[in-house]
Simulated scan of single mutants.
Amino acid sequence: MHSQRVPVLCPDHLPDGLCRMVAQIVDDITVALPTVHPKLRVEVGDPAGRPLLTFTVWFDHVRRTAFGVPVRMLRASVEQLRGDLAAKLQNAFVEEYGKPLPPCPGHEHSLAPEVRDVAVWLCPYDPGHWSCRIGDYRAEG
């Protein structure tokens, strides 16, 4: 287990639920890392006249990746948003660390985010092998 949580810096006017969701996803993804030093900033911007949330991940004070989420995506179901954010954040952390994150228990690959009735992490090769709701990896793992 890692010893520190990734700080998620959200603007004051973002809903607490969104900030908690992002923090839970990042906790799931980084559970297998011994120590992590990234900071994740969620900012609200308006590039090119399109409102969007910008997620910027800084690893050891160096901006490594950023991606935008159109504000219209926030109108999707909570579970669809959870799954979409999990996929984008997972890509950022896997690219940085070169490891399967979050790891599929007993296998050597990452779990895959998928939206069913709820957003879940599941084994991409054998969905019956292992799955849990995104945000609950620690509780299940």
Rank of each mutant, 00 (worst) to 15 (best):
A86N: 05
F55I: 13
G17H: 02
A66H: 14
R82T: 12
M73P: 00
A66D: 14
H129I: 00
Y125H: 11
L122I: 05
L81N: 06
S110H: 01
R72F: 04
R75M: 09
R50I: 08
L14D: 06
D28N: 03
S131K: 02
Y125I: 04
V26W: 13
L101V: 03
V26Y: 09
M21H: 00
Q80H: 08
P11C: 07
P102Q: 08
T35H: 08
V8H: 12
V71H: 04
A76P: 01
D46N: 15
H129C: 01
V118Y: 08
T65A: 13
C10H: 05
R75D: 12
D12Y: 11
P34D: 09
C123R: 03
P11D: 13
I134R: 03
H2Y: 06
L74R: 06
D126W: 09
W121R: 04
P15F: 03
E96C: 10
H2W: 07
V31W: 11
G98M: 06
R50V: 10
V26I: 15
D117N: 15
A48N: 13
M21N: 02
P51C: 09
A66N: 11
E140N: 02
K99F: 11
L74P: 07
V78L: 08
D117F: 13
R133A: 07
L81F: 09
R82D: 05
P34I: 02
G17A: 08
P105A: 10
V42L: 15
P47F: 13
L74Q: 08
V94T: 12
V120W: 02
L18G: 00
G106I: 10
W130V: 04
R75G: 11
Q90L: 11
L89I: 11
V120N: 01
P11Y: 11
G135T: 03
W121V: 02
H129Q: 00
M21R: 07
V57R: 15
P102H: 07
S131T: 00
C104Y: 01
G106P: 07
E96Y: 08
E79V: 12
A87N: 01
I29W: 07
R72T: 10
R138S: 09
P38W: 14
V118C: 08
T56I: 15
E96N: 11
C132F: 02
V57T: 15
P11N: 10
E43V: 14
I134W: 09
P102V: 08
T54A: 14
P11H: 12
V62G: 04
W58Q: 12
L40F: 10
R50H: 05
S3W: 07
R72I: 03
P103V: 07
W121H: 04
G68P: 14
V62L: 12
F93Y: 15
D16I: 02
P70V: 10
G49I: 00
E114A: 14
A32T: 05
I29A: 05
L74N: 04
A92F: 08
E114L: 13
